[in-house]
Design a binder for these strands. Structure first.
Length: 406
DNA sequence: AGGACCGGGATCTGCCATACTT
DNA sequence: AAGTATGGCAGATCCCGGTCCT
Protein backbone atom coordinates (compact mmCIF):
# COMPACT_ATOMS: atom_id res chain seq x y z
CA UNK A 1 0.00 0.00 0.00
CA UNK A 2 2.64 2.46 1.13
CA UNK A 3 4.76 1.40 -1.73
CA UNK A 4 2.09 1.84 -4.36
CA UNK A 5 0.96 5.23 -3.16
CA UNK A 6 4.56 6.39 -3.03
CA UNK A 7 5.18 5.28 -6.55
CA UNK A 8 2.02 7.04 -7.66
CA UNK A 9 3.15 10.25 -6.02
CA UNK A 10 6.50 9.97 -7.69
CA UNK A 11 4.79 9.37 -10.97
CA UNK A 12 2.75 12.52 -10.60
CA UNK A 13 5.74 14.61 -9.66
CA UNK A 14 7.72 13.17 -12.50
CA UNK A 15 4.89 13.74 -14.88
CA UNK A 16 4.49 17.33 -13.86
CA UNK A 17 8.15 18.04 -14.35
CA UNK A 18 8.28 16.01 -17.45
CA UNK A 19 5.21 17.61 -18.95
CA UNK A 20 6.74 21.03 -18.65
CA UNK A 21 10.08 19.91 -19.96
CA UNK A 22 8.88 17.96 -22.89
CA UNK A 23 6.11 20.24 -23.88
CA UNK A 24 8.15 22.16 -26.36
CA UNK A 25 9.16 19.01 -28.14
CA UNK A 26 5.61 17.87 -28.13
CA UNK A 27 4.23 21.01 -29.66
CA UNK A 28 6.97 20.92 -32.22
CA UNK A 29 6.05 17.43 -33.24
CA UNK A 30 2.35 17.79 -32.97
CA UNK A 31 1.68 21.27 -34.17
CA UNK A 32 2.36 20.49 -37.77
CA UNK A 33 -1.21 19.36 -38.10
CA UNK A 34 -3.23 22.18 -36.74
CA UNK A 35 -2.71 24.92 -34.27
CA UNK A 36 -6.41 25.07 -33.47
CA UNK A 37 -6.84 21.34 -33.55
CA UNK A 38 -8.05 20.74 -30.03
CA UNK A 39 -10.73 23.20 -29.06
CA UNK A 40 -12.05 20.51 -26.76
CA UNK A 41 -9.39 21.00 -24.11
CA UNK A 42 -8.71 24.66 -24.56
CA UNK A 43 -5.08 25.59 -24.59
CA UNK A 44 -3.51 26.37 -21.25
CA UNK A 45 -1.26 29.43 -21.05
CA UNK A 46 1.93 27.41 -21.27
CA UNK A 47 0.67 25.79 -24.40
CA UNK A 48 -0.21 29.10 -25.97
CA UNK A 49 3.21 30.47 -25.19
CA UNK A 50 4.90 27.45 -26.62
CA UNK A 51 2.70 27.66 -29.63
CA UNK A 52 3.74 31.20 -30.49
CA UNK A 53 7.33 30.49 -29.78
CA UNK A 54 7.50 27.43 -31.89
CA UNK A 55 5.27 28.28 -34.76
CA UNK A 56 8.12 29.14 -37.03
CA UNK A 57 10.05 26.01 -36.26
CA UNK A 58 7.00 23.98 -36.76
CA UNK A 59 6.10 25.28 -40.14
CA UNK A 60 9.53 24.29 -41.36
CA UNK A 61 9.06 20.91 -39.80
CA UNK A 62 5.62 20.57 -41.30
CA UNK A 63 6.78 21.12 -44.84
CA UNK A 64 9.46 18.53 -44.45
CA UNK A 65 7.11 16.04 -42.88
CA UNK A 66 4.40 16.43 -45.45
CA UNK A 67 6.64 16.04 -48.42
CA UNK A 68 8.60 13.07 -47.19
CA UNK A 69 6.41 11.19 -44.77
CA UNK A 70 2.70 11.02 -45.45
CA UNK A 71 2.08 9.36 -42.10
CA UNK A 72 2.36 11.51 -39.02
CA UNK A 73 4.94 10.24 -36.55
CA UNK A 74 4.04 9.27 -33.03
CA UNK A 75 3.90 11.90 -30.35
CA UNK A 76 7.19 11.47 -28.51
CA UNK A 77 6.20 13.22 -25.34
CA UNK A 78 2.99 11.24 -25.13
CA UNK A 79 5.01 8.04 -25.44
CA UNK A 80 7.32 9.25 -22.74
CA UNK A 81 4.45 10.03 -20.41
CA UNK A 82 2.83 6.71 -21.05
CA UNK A 83 6.06 4.90 -20.31
CA UNK A 84 6.38 6.86 -17.14
CA UNK A 85 2.91 5.80 -16.11
CA UNK A 86 3.76 2.18 -16.67
CA UNK A 87 1.51 1.83 -19.70
CA UNK A 88 2.21 -1.07 -22.03
CA UNK A 89 2.89 1.11 -25.05
CA UNK A 90 3.34 -1.84 -27.34
CA UNK A 91 -0.14 -3.03 -26.50
CA UNK A 92 -1.58 0.46 -26.84
CA UNK A 93 0.04 0.87 -30.25
CA UNK A 94 -1.36 -2.42 -31.39
CA UNK A 95 -4.87 -1.48 -30.30
CA UNK A 96 -5.22 2.14 -31.32
CA UNK A 97 -2.18 3.33 -33.23
CA UNK A 98 -3.84 6.61 -34.19
CA UNK A 99 -4.04 7.78 -30.60
CA UNK A 100 -0.26 7.69 -30.25
CA UNK A 101 0.04 10.15 -33.12
CA UNK A 102 -2.30 12.73 -31.67
CA UNK A 103 -0.80 16.14 -31.03
CA UNK A 104 -2.76 16.96 -27.91
CA UNK A 105 -3.82 14.41 -25.40
CA UNK A 106 -4.80 14.43 -21.79
CA UNK A 107 -2.93 11.51 -20.27
CA UNK A 108 -1.82 13.51 -17.29
CA UNK A 109 -5.30 14.79 -16.59
CA UNK A 110 -6.70 11.31 -16.98
CA UNK A 111 -4.08 9.88 -14.67
CA UNK A 112 -4.79 12.39 -11.95
CA UNK A 113 -8.52 12.08 -12.42
CA UNK A 114 -8.52 8.32 -12.05
CA UNK A 115 -6.09 8.52 -9.19
CA UNK A 116 -8.40 10.93 -7.39
CA UNK A 117 -11.13 8.32 -7.77
CA UNK A 118 -8.98 5.77 -6.02
CA UNK A 119 -7.45 3.90 -8.94
CA UNK A 120 -3.93 2.65 -8.38
CA UNK A 121 -1.09 3.39 -10.74
CA UNK A 122 -1.19 -0.17 -11.96
CA UNK A 123 -4.91 -0.05 -12.64
CA UNK A 124 -4.59 3.20 -14.55
CA UNK A 125 -1.74 1.81 -16.62
CA UNK A 126 -3.83 -1.24 -17.42
CA UNK A 127 -6.76 0.90 -18.46
CA UNK A 128 -4.73 3.04 -20.86
CA UNK A 129 -2.86 0.04 -22.23
CA UNK A 130 -6.10 -1.65 -23.15
CA UNK A 131 -8.04 1.41 -24.24
CA UNK A 132 -5.62 4.14 -25.27
CA UNK A 133 -8.32 6.47 -26.54
CA UNK A 134 -9.14 7.17 -22.90
CA UNK A 135 -6.26 9.58 -23.09
CA UNK A 136 -8.15 11.86 -25.47
CA UNK A 137 -10.98 12.61 -23.06
CA UNK A 138 -11.03 16.00 -21.41
CA UNK A 139 -11.39 16.53 -17.70
CA UNK A 140 -14.84 18.07 -18.14
CA UNK A 141 -15.94 15.06 -20.13
CA UNK A 142 -14.54 12.64 -17.56
CA UNK A 143 -16.17 14.43 -14.68
CA UNK A 144 -19.52 14.52 -16.40
CA UNK A 145 -19.40 10.88 -17.37
CA UNK A 146 -18.29 9.85 -13.91
CA UNK A 147 -21.19 11.80 -12.46
CA UNK A 148 -23.60 9.92 -14.68
CA UNK A 149 -22.20 6.57 -13.64
CA UNK A 150 -22.47 7.67 -10.06
CA UNK A 151 -26.20 7.98 -10.58
CA UNK A 152 -26.21 4.22 -10.51
CA UNK A 153 -23.18 3.34 -8.39
CA UNK A 154 -22.94 4.39 -4.80
CA UNK A 155 -19.16 4.58 -4.60
CA UNK A 156 -16.24 5.55 -6.78
CA UNK A 157 -14.49 2.29 -6.05
CA UNK A 158 -17.29 0.31 -7.64
CA UNK A 159 -16.78 2.28 -10.83
CA UNK A 160 -13.03 1.85 -10.69
CA UNK A 161 -13.53 -1.90 -10.46
CA UNK A 162 -15.75 -1.95 -13.52
CA UNK A 163 -13.44 0.27 -15.57
CA UNK A 164 -10.49 -1.86 -14.59
CA UNK A 165 -12.38 -4.86 -15.81
CA UNK A 166 -13.64 -3.24 -18.97
CA UNK A 167 -12.01 0.06 -19.86
CA UNK A 168 -13.73 0.10 -23.20
CA UNK A 169 -17.19 0.19 -21.66
CA UNK A 170 -16.46 3.47 -19.98
CA UNK A 171 -14.34 5.16 -22.59
CA UNK A 172 -15.53 3.97 -25.97
CA UNK A 173 -18.21 6.57 -26.39
CA UNK A 174 -17.70 10.29 -26.02
CA UNK A 175 -21.39 10.98 -26.04
CA UNK A 176 -22.43 11.81 -22.51
CA UNK A 177 -25.81 13.02 -23.61
CA UNK A 178 -26.52 9.62 -25.07
CA UNK A 179 -25.46 8.00 -21.80
CA UNK A 180 -27.84 10.22 -19.90
CA UNK A 181 -30.68 9.32 -22.23
CA UNK A 182 -29.85 5.66 -21.88
CA UNK A 183 -30.06 5.82 -18.13
CA UNK A 184 -33.41 7.56 -18.42
CA UNK A 185 -34.64 5.04 -20.96
CA UNK A 186 -33.55 1.97 -19.03
CA UNK A 187 -35.04 3.41 -15.87
CA UNK A 188 -38.31 3.95 -17.68
CA UNK A 189 -38.49 0.23 -18.36
CA UNK A 190 -39.46 -0.21 -14.75
CA UNK A 191 -36.20 -1.89 -14.09
CA UNK A 192 -35.73 -1.29 -10.42
CA UNK A 193 -32.62 0.29 -8.94
CA UNK A 194 -31.16 -3.08 -8.14
CA UNK A 195 -31.61 -4.38 -11.67
CA UNK A 196 -30.17 -1.20 -13.12
CA UNK A 197 -27.19 -1.54 -10.86
CA UNK A 198 -26.70 -5.16 -11.83
CA UNK A 199 -27.07 -4.27 -15.49
CA UNK A 200 -24.35 -1.66 -15.41
CA UNK A 201 -22.12 -3.87 -13.28
CA UNK A 202 -22.51 -6.94 -15.38
CA UNK A 203 -22.90 -5.59 -18.88
CA UNK A 204 -21.50 -2.06 -18.76
CA UNK A 205 -21.38 -1.91 -22.52
CA UNK A 206 -25.16 -1.56 -22.53
CA UNK A 207 -24.76 2.03 -21.39
CA UNK A 208 -22.41 2.87 -24.24
CA UNK A 209 -24.81 1.56 -26.83
CA UNK A 210 -26.65 4.20 -28.76
CA UNK A 211 -30.05 4.92 -27.35
CA UNK A 212 -31.49 3.76 -30.67
CA UNK A 213 -29.82 0.37 -30.39
CA UNK A 214 -31.18 -0.24 -26.91
CA UNK A 215 -34.60 0.95 -27.98
CA UNK A 216 -34.52 -1.33 -30.97
CA UNK A 217 -33.91 -4.38 -28.78
CA UNK A 218 -36.64 -3.42 -26.34
CA UNK A 219 -39.12 -2.86 -29.16
CA UNK A 220 -38.06 -6.12 -30.72
CA UNK A 221 -38.78 -7.96 -27.49
CA UNK A 222 -42.16 -6.26 -27.18
CA UNK A 223 -42.96 -7.38 -30.71
CA UNK A 224 -41.96 -10.95 -29.93
CA UNK A 225 -44.26 -10.96 -26.94
CA UNK A 226 -47.14 -9.53 -28.91
CA UNK A 227 -46.60 -12.00 -31.75
CA UNK A 228 -46.80 -14.84 -29.28
CA UNK A 229 -50.05 -13.54 -27.91
CA UNK A 230 -48.64 -12.17 -24.66
CA UNK A 231 -50.98 -9.97 -22.69
CA UNK A 232 -48.58 -7.27 -21.55
CA UNK A 233 -45.79 -6.73 -24.06
CA UNK A 234 -44.49 -3.74 -22.08
CA UNK A 235 -43.56 -6.00 -19.18
CA UNK A 236 -41.85 -8.58 -21.32
CA UNK A 237 -38.55 -6.78 -22.08
CA UNK A 238 -38.11 -6.07 -18.39
CA UNK A 239 -38.62 -9.72 -17.55
CA UNK A 240 -36.12 -10.84 -20.17
CA UNK A 241 -33.52 -8.22 -19.30
CA UNK A 242 -33.62 -8.92 -15.59
CA UNK A 243 -33.12 -12.61 -16.31
CA UNK A 244 -30.46 -12.06 -18.93
CA UNK A 245 -28.40 -8.96 -18.41
CA UNK A 246 -26.45 -9.51 -21.58
CA UNK A 247 -29.39 -9.28 -23.91
CA UNK A 248 -28.93 -5.60 -24.71
CA UNK A 249 -25.40 -6.10 -25.92
CA UNK A 250 -26.52 -8.72 -28.40
CA UNK A 251 -27.96 -8.14 -31.82
CA UNK A 252 -31.66 -8.54 -32.43
CA UNK A 253 -30.65 -10.82 -35.27
CA UNK A 254 -28.97 -13.19 -32.89
CA UNK A 255 -31.81 -13.18 -30.38
CA UNK A 256 -34.39 -13.67 -33.11
CA UNK A 257 -32.52 -16.64 -34.53
CA UNK A 258 -32.23 -18.27 -31.14
CA UNK A 259 -35.92 -17.84 -30.51
CA UNK A 260 -36.64 -19.42 -33.89
CA UNK A 261 -34.25 -22.25 -33.12
CA UNK A 262 -35.97 -23.01 -29.82
CA UNK A 263 -39.39 -22.88 -31.40
CA UNK A 264 -38.62 -25.15 -34.31
CA UNK A 265 -36.31 -27.55 -32.51
CA UNK A 266 -38.78 -28.21 -29.73
CA UNK A 267 -41.93 -27.74 -31.83
CA UNK A 268 -43.28 -25.24 -29.36
CA UNK A 269 -46.66 -23.57 -29.45
CA UNK A 270 -46.85 -19.80 -29.04
CA UNK A 271 -47.81 -20.04 -25.40
CA UNK A 272 -45.14 -22.63 -24.63
CA UNK A 273 -42.50 -20.47 -26.26
CA UNK A 274 -43.67 -17.38 -24.41
CA UNK A 275 -43.59 -19.18 -21.09
CA UNK A 276 -40.10 -20.42 -21.84
CA UNK A 277 -38.85 -16.95 -22.73
CA UNK A 278 -40.44 -15.33 -19.71
CA UNK A 279 -38.90 -17.98 -17.50
CA UNK A 280 -35.43 -19.47 -17.53
CA UNK A 281 -35.27 -19.59 -21.31
CA UNK A 282 -34.16 -15.97 -21.34
CA UNK A 283 -30.80 -17.15 -20.07
CA UNK A 284 -29.83 -18.86 -23.26
CA UNK A 285 -31.04 -16.25 -25.74
CA UNK A 286 -27.69 -14.55 -26.01
CA UNK A 287 -25.71 -17.63 -26.95
CA UNK A 288 -24.21 -17.62 -30.40
CA UNK A 289 -26.61 -19.10 -32.92
CA UNK A 290 -24.42 -21.98 -33.98
CA UNK A 291 -23.52 -22.84 -30.43
CA UNK A 292 -27.14 -23.11 -29.35
CA UNK A 293 -28.12 -25.15 -32.37
CA UNK A 294 -25.09 -27.42 -32.00
CA UNK A 295 -25.78 -28.02 -28.33
CA UNK A 296 -29.38 -28.82 -29.05
CA UNK A 297 -28.52 -31.25 -31.83
CA UNK A 298 -25.95 -32.96 -29.69
CA UNK A 299 -28.29 -33.28 -26.73
CA UNK A 300 -31.06 -34.68 -28.91
CA UNK A 301 -28.70 -37.21 -30.42
CA UNK A 302 -27.34 -38.23 -27.04
CA UNK A 303 -30.75 -38.58 -25.44
CA UNK A 304 -32.11 -40.50 -28.40
CA UNK A 305 -29.21 -42.91 -28.19
CA UNK A 306 -30.08 -43.40 -24.52
CA UNK A 307 -33.61 -44.36 -25.42
CA UNK A 308 -35.42 -41.08 -24.84
CA UNK A 309 -38.37 -39.94 -26.89
CA UNK A 310 -38.99 -36.49 -28.33
CA UNK A 311 -41.31 -35.66 -25.47
CA UNK A 312 -38.55 -36.42 -22.97
CA UNK A 313 -36.18 -34.06 -24.70
CA UNK A 314 -38.79 -31.33 -24.71
CA UNK A 315 -39.62 -31.88 -21.08
CA UNK A 316 -36.00 -31.73 -20.03
CA UNK A 317 -35.25 -28.54 -21.92
CA UNK A 318 -38.44 -26.77 -20.89
CA UNK A 319 -37.86 -27.44 -17.24
CA UNK A 320 -34.17 -26.65 -17.35
CA UNK A 321 -33.23 -24.62 -20.44
CA UNK A 322 -29.77 -23.92 -19.07
CA UNK A 323 -28.70 -27.42 -20.14
CA UNK A 324 -28.35 -25.86 -23.58
CA UNK A 325 -25.80 -23.49 -22.15
CA UNK A 326 -23.46 -26.37 -21.53
CA UNK A 327 -21.11 -27.26 -24.35
CA UNK A 328 -21.84 -30.51 -26.15
CA UNK A 329 -18.77 -32.39 -24.91
CA UNK A 330 -19.23 -31.37 -21.29
CA UNK A 331 -22.90 -32.29 -21.33
CA UNK A 332 -22.28 -35.72 -22.84
CA UNK A 333 -19.56 -36.45 -20.30
CA UNK A 334 -21.87 -35.34 -17.50
CA UNK A 335 -24.69 -37.58 -18.67
CA UNK A 336 -22.34 -40.56 -19.02
CA UNK A 337 -21.02 -39.90 -15.58
CA UNK A 338 -24.52 -39.92 -14.05
CA UNK A 339 -25.54 -43.03 -15.88
CA UNK A 340 -22.36 -44.84 -14.93
CA UNK A 341 -23.13 -43.89 -11.35
CA UNK A 342 -26.39 -45.81 -11.49
CA UNK A 343 -28.83 -43.03 -12.34
CA UNK A 344 -31.38 -43.53 -15.09
CA UNK A 345 -32.20 -41.18 -17.93
CA UNK A 346 -35.76 -41.14 -16.68
CA UNK A 347 -34.61 -39.73 -13.36
CA UNK A 348 -32.56 -37.09 -15.11
CA UNK A 349 -35.48 -36.04 -17.27
CA UNK A 350 -37.61 -35.66 -14.17
CA UNK A 351 -34.97 -33.84 -12.13
CA UNK A 352 -32.73 -32.14 -14.68
CA UNK A 353 -31.31 -29.70 -12.17
CA UNK A 354 -28.54 -32.18 -11.40
CA UNK A 355 -27.11 -31.18 -14.74
CA UNK A 356 -26.50 -27.73 -13.32
CA UNK A 357 -23.64 -29.07 -11.24
CA UNK A 358 -20.15 -29.56 -12.51
CA UNK A 359 -19.03 -32.97 -13.66
CA UNK A 360 -16.37 -32.91 -10.99
CA UNK A 361 -18.87 -32.14 -8.28
CA UNK A 362 -21.22 -34.87 -9.50
CA UNK A 363 -18.41 -37.38 -9.72
CA UNK A 364 -17.22 -36.67 -6.20
CA UNK A 365 -20.71 -36.96 -4.77
CA UNK A 366 -21.43 -40.16 -6.65
CA UNK A 367 -18.23 -41.69 -5.27
CA UNK A 368 -19.02 -40.68 -1.72
CA UNK A 369 -22.56 -41.98 -1.97
CA UNK A 370 -21.34 -45.22 -3.47
CA UNK A 371 -19.04 -45.94 -0.52
CA UNK A 372 -22.02 -45.93 1.81
CA UNK A 373 -24.21 -47.86 -0.61
CA UNK A 374 -26.75 -45.13 -1.37
CA UNK A 375 -29.67 -46.45 -3.39
CA UNK A 376 -30.78 -43.95 -6.04
CA UNK A 377 -33.70 -46.03 -7.15
CA UNK A 378 -35.10 -46.03 -3.67
CA UNK A 379 -34.09 -42.54 -2.55
CA UNK A 380 -34.12 -40.48 -5.72
CA UNK A 381 -31.42 -38.18 -6.95
CA UNK A 382 -32.20 -34.97 -5.09
CA UNK A 383 -29.11 -35.37 -2.90
CA UNK A 384 -27.09 -34.36 -5.89
CA UNK A 385 -28.98 -31.09 -6.23
CA UNK A 386 -28.07 -29.37 -2.99
CA UNK A 387 -25.49 -26.98 -1.68
CA UNK A 388 -22.17 -28.27 -0.46
CA UNK A 389 -23.14 -27.51 3.10
CA UNK A 390 -26.35 -29.45 2.88
CA UNK A 391 -24.74 -32.32 1.06
CA UNK A 392 -22.04 -32.70 3.69
CA UNK A 393 -24.61 -32.56 6.48
CA UNK A 394 -26.53 -35.28 4.72
CA UNK A 395 -23.41 -37.41 4.31
CA UNK A 396 -22.58 -36.98 7.96
CA UNK A 397 -25.99 -38.20 8.96
CA UNK A 398 -25.89 -41.15 6.59
CA UNK A 399 -22.54 -42.36 7.81
CA UNK A 400 -23.61 -42.14 11.47
CA UNK A 401 -26.88 -44.02 11.06
CA UNK A 402 -27.20 -45.26 7.51
CA UNK A 403 -30.29 -47.38 8.11
CA UNK A 404 -32.34 -44.63 9.74
CA UNK A 405 -31.81 -42.16 7.02
CA UNK A 406 -32.19 -44.50 4.11
C1' DA B 1 -37.12 -31.51 11.07
C1' DG B 2 -35.88 -32.77 6.74
C1' DG B 3 -36.40 -32.71 2.09
C1' DA B 4 -38.26 -30.86 -2.30
C1' DC B 5 -38.86 -26.99 -5.16
C1' DC B 6 -37.43 -23.07 -7.05
C1' DG B 7 -35.28 -18.71 -8.03
C1' DG B 8 -31.36 -15.95 -7.77
C1' DG B 9 -26.46 -14.59 -8.05
C1' DA B 10 -21.68 -14.55 -9.86
C1' DT B 11 -20.24 -13.94 -14.42
C1' DC B 12 -18.61 -11.14 -19.62
C1' DT B 13 -14.29 -9.04 -22.60
C1' DG B 14 -11.44 -7.82 -26.24
C1' DC B 15 -11.22 -7.77 -30.75
C1' DC B 16 -12.70 -6.69 -35.62
C1' DA B 17 -15.55 -4.39 -39.29
C1' DT B 18 -17.79 -0.61 -40.88
C1' DA B 19 -19.97 3.80 -41.09
C1' DC B 20 -19.31 8.34 -40.03
C1' DT B 21 -16.39 12.75 -39.31
C1' DT B 22 -13.20 15.90 -40.18
C1' DA C 1 -7.19 9.27 -45.56
C1' DA C 2 -6.86 9.21 -40.74
C1' DG C 3 -9.21 8.93 -36.78
C1' DT C 4 -13.45 8.12 -34.16
C1' DA C 5 -17.78 6.00 -32.83
C1' DT C 6 -20.46 2.18 -32.84
C1' DG C 7 -22.32 -2.51 -33.84
C1' DG C 8 -21.39 -7.17 -33.56
C1' DC C 9 -19.08 -11.41 -32.71
C1' DA C 10 -17.01 -15.84 -30.19
C1' DG C 11 -16.26 -17.82 -25.86
C1' DA C 12 -19.44 -21.35 -22.90
C1' DT C 13 -21.91 -22.88 -15.87
C1' DC C 14 -22.00 -23.66 -11.27
C1' DC C 15 -23.63 -23.12 -6.91
C1' DC C 16 -26.37 -21.47 -2.82
C1' DG C 17 -30.04 -21.15 0.23
C1' DG C 18 -35.02 -19.35 1.17
C1' DT C 19 -39.37 -21.18 1.57
C1' DC C 20 -42.90 -24.35 1.12
C1' DC C 21 -44.44 -29.03 1.90
C1' DT C 22 -44.97 -33.24 4.51
Amino acid sequence: MVHSSTSSDITVIFLSLKMAAVHAVRVLVGLCHSVALQPRFGLIPVQLASTCLLRRLCSINAKRTESKLPVCPENESLLENLNLMGVDVKMARQRQPGVLRKAFTNEQGLFQFLQSKGASRKVIAGIISRYPRAVTRSIEHLEQRWGLWRKIFKTDSEIVTIIDRSPESFFRSSDNENLEKNIAFLSSLELNTKDLHRLLTTAPRTFSNSLQLNKRMVEFLEDVCAELGGKNPEQFPKAVISKNLYILIRSTKRVRKNIDTLRSSLKLSDSELLALLEGHGANILDLSNEYLQRNFNSLRQKMTSLGCRKADIKQLILSCPSVLYTGQDTLCIKLDCLIKGGITMKQIVEKPKVLDYSTQNITERLEKLQTIGYDFQKNGINVLDSSKKRFLAKMEKLSVSPDDSM
